[in-house]
């Protein structure tokens, strides 16, 4: 008897940079599919799941978090070199995350307010997305990412097909689901029309406006959106807050937020 040849499984690694770990936890959150994922890939590095580390190179690398320290700015290059297909997951990795709010102020103000001895803190002035440092094969949006999209990306890679992650607006998801438009029917300011799909329109489904956890969609007309919000009575300060949240460093949102900043 010739022993049955075991098909070599792809090595998957998860990497953490400045982040809350919520996105990599989405992978653990795939309860029903978790065994199938573990069956389909060799989990080579996944700090939230296991301390075991398998040596690279890695077929799939999922990168969470933004670059905020000189050390991380170096480390990301080593990960890129060791990875074949590198996917950034979540708002921190794709748009600097909530910590990119510091890009609009002096980071030393924070370190001196928070740490007893700020001199031991080595940090960069800006929190930047991974694409500012290395070429990335795919960006998966969200704060956190949608676990089904995460599985979809892994599944698409393993089966050599295009992942179905559409860059259009949340409005399309709303209408597919049959939600009523909160902006038109309730007068609630909603970022859905300029926000990247992927969450399946969670907030409008609960009668709330979209907060843009997934950041700007393809060709986002932030100017027209902001003008409409102004007509609806949204103040300049609130406009700045709306465009500066989880995706504060996304180019289009950053530019729009600066327009509404008070000059004082």
């Amino acid at each position: 008897m010739v022993p049955k040849k075991e098909k070599k499984k792809a090595k998957l690694a998860v990497w953490k940079f400045a982040s809350c770990d919520g996105c990599q936890l989405s992978l653990l959150d795939c309860e029903d599919e978790l065994l199938a994922v573990a069956d389909a890939v060799d989990i080579a590095n996944f700090p939230e799941a296991s301390r075991a580390i398998v040596k690279g190179p890695y077929e799939i690398s999922l990168v969470e978090g933004s670059i905020t320290t000189p050390h991380d700015a170096e480390r990301i290059h080593r990960i890129r070199r060791a990875s074949k297909f590198l996917v950034t997951i979540g708002a921190c990795a794709t748009a600097g995350g909530i910590q990119a709010l510091r890009n609009y102020t002096d980071v030393r103000e924070f370190t001196s307010a928070i740490y007893a001895s700020p001199k031991y803190i080595t940090t960069l002035q800006n929190s930047t997305p991974i694409t500012d440092h290395i070429p990335v094969d795919l960006e998966l949006r969200g704060c956190p990412v949608n676990k089904y999209q995460l599985i979809e990306v892994v599944s698409a890679y393993l089966n050599r097909r295009k992942p179905n992650v559409s860059p259009y607006s949340v409005c399309i998801e709303c209408k597919l689901r049959g939600h009523n438009c909160v902006m038109v029917a309730r007068g609630t300011p909603c970022l859905g029309p300029i926000t990247h799909a992927g969450c399946d329109a969670v907030c409008p489904g609960f009668d709330r406006g979209c907060y843009s956890c997934f950041g700007p969609k393809e060709t986002p007309n932030t100017r027209a959106m902001a003008e409409r919000f102004e007509e609806m009575g949204v103040s300049a300060d609130d406009l700045v807050r709306m465009f500066r949240s989880f995706n504060a460093e996304a180019d289009e949102f950053r530019k729009e937020s600066i327009i509404h900043e008070r000059q004082d």
Partner: peptide, 29 residues
């Protein structure tokens, strides 16, 4: 300059009929 390209008009239009086709697989293929 005004259009958000959000696609709401086409979604609510009773005659708009465009569709796309998506292929998906499970992890095992």
């Amino acid at each position: 300059h005004r259009c958000l390209t959000c696609a709401n008009c086409t979604m609510v239009c009773p005659t708009c009929f465009c569709s796309t086709v998506e292929d998906t697989t499970d992890l095992t293929g």
